[in-house]
Design a protein around this nucleic acid. Sequence first.
DNA 1: CTAAACTCTATCGGTTTAATAGAATTTGTA
DNA 2: TACAAATTCTATTAAACCGATAGAGTTTAG
Lengths: 137, 137
Amino acid sequence: MLSHKAKYALKALLYLAEQDENHISKTIEIADGANIPKKFLEQILLDLKRGRFVSSKQGKFGGYYLIKSKNEITLAEIHRLFDGAIALLPCASLNFYEPCSDCKTESECSLRHGLMLIRDKTLKAMEGITIASLVKK
Amino acid sequence: MLSHKAKYALKALLYLAEQDENHISKTIEIADGANIPKKFLEQILLDLKRGRFVSSKQGKFGGYYLIKSKNEITLAEIHRLFDGAIALLPCASLNFYEPCSDCKTESECSLRHGLMLIRDKTLKAMEGITIASLVKK
DNA sequence: CTAAACTCTATCGGTTTAATAGAATTTGTA
DNA sequence: TACAAATTCTATTAAACCGATAGAGTTTAG
């Protein structure tokens, strides 16, 4: 499941993607437009900035704007940024790999192989969902 | 991600699937064999029993055994039993559907459609992973 | 200088999770 | 019938996580 943070992040990106080119959106604008608690959204936007999906302008008349093409922002990336691994267990993860503590012999995890199959398919599907593809709908 | 419960459940089922037909496994046996805390495993086995995956014999010389074919127990079912929805948001879930509280108009959720695509693909993949397929590896 | 915005850090209450504890019940057998 | 060995049930715990809020600090335009 997606955390609220990830869900809100997607909605915020969607909102930004729908604005005119070069428009800068204030946090309060996005919060109202996408129905997200403002103070919570502030944190999320900072995370998105650190992740290089958006950038910001400070001070009066500042705000946020996309710096990555809406065709290139995928559900997989946003899920990873906010919720971590896409795989069902750390031992099957590409970006958040950790060995199982309860598997007797290393790489002798009975689940790993099957879970890697799932990960590959899920990942592929999630990479096919972009902000642009969601806007169109 | 899978919870520890779901992971342990899969490992316990795997252990049971590897035993001789008609063999009854004591909890302590499974716990040692699959490296699972015994008292925690007790609860998990009860859940698996309520889910009709295993059955038990009480009293001395009692224990647990599979009552569902290892070809018919899928990762999807175990995941649902212990962790709930497979979809990324409740509004995209088949078995745990709930409307989004923060979507202005009902069925106007901008994410729902995309997430249902993901759900379908992930579900299909997870239904392809059975206990039998994991044992073979 | 001031207003309006982003930035940063801390905190809070609630829920969930992983695990443990212990008493109750059931059953086979000596 | 008593006992031992097993499941069953309910409660509790400690820690982590989550969603959200608060407030002080910094930056910028005018």
